[in-house]
Amino acid sequence: MDNWSWEIFWDAFPVVLEGLGITVGLTFACYLFALIFGFVWTFLRRIPFKPLNWIVTWVMEFIRSTPPLVQLFFIYFAWPMVPVVGMTLSPFASAVLGLGLHFSTYIGEVYRSGIEGVEKGQWEASRALNFSTSQKWLKVILPQAIPPTIPMLGNYLIIMFKEVPLASTIGVVGILHMANSYGAQYWAYLEPLTIVAILFLVLSYPSAILISKLEKRMNRRFNKNEALNSSKGATT
């Protein structure tokens, strides 16, 4: 490896690392946005009004079927040119809005699967005990719907972390952006981009292991609840 230089590697390392705060910060900001907006989708879809559900489903489908990169470009470059509602956002805010919105459609599906995973009998028991709508959700449905979704939500956090470098295309100064500038300045891309890869690996691999552990624990819990209904399976 004639072209590899440890000298450049160690020189570039602190420079690239400077962008880590932005990359991680952007990941969490996007994630928070997606968690909240995912709830909004789920809520809108549960309102018993067919035309609204239809519109919401198609908007979600549209957002999901368009590349996040195109959405970022649209929000950052095109939106300011839209009459009346157009506005200029900072690169960071554009990235939060674009990636957050994109992932919120997936997060919304996760919430939905969690809610639909709660047995019909639980809704009926809530009714039989005369719970109000809010009591039903807070005491019965959500405590059962949320835990099984935690591993899936964790996975989306990691996936999102790996999508965040897209934001460097609109000038968010994360680790990829720092590595690129270093490369352009010294005409040395190999080392800084290797550093970027290593940083992503070091952060996402342990998180993935953590989440798979969590998933196993959740599965055990779920199986325990399955035993609860074993007699049901025998008769129906």
């Binding site: 009998g121 639980q122 039989a128 005990l129 005369n130 109000s132």
Partner: peptide
């Protein structure tokens, strides 16, 4: 509110203890 029901498949709340299953509705409803 005057009606109570027992189901074929019990429909107990799996995330609550037996005692909590019983006392949640009197407290909140």
């Amino acid at each position: 509110g005057d009606i109570g029901m027992v189901f074929q498949h019990f429909n107990l709340f799996p995330h609550m203890t037996i005692l909590e299953n019983c006392m949640t509705a009197p407290i909140h409803v």
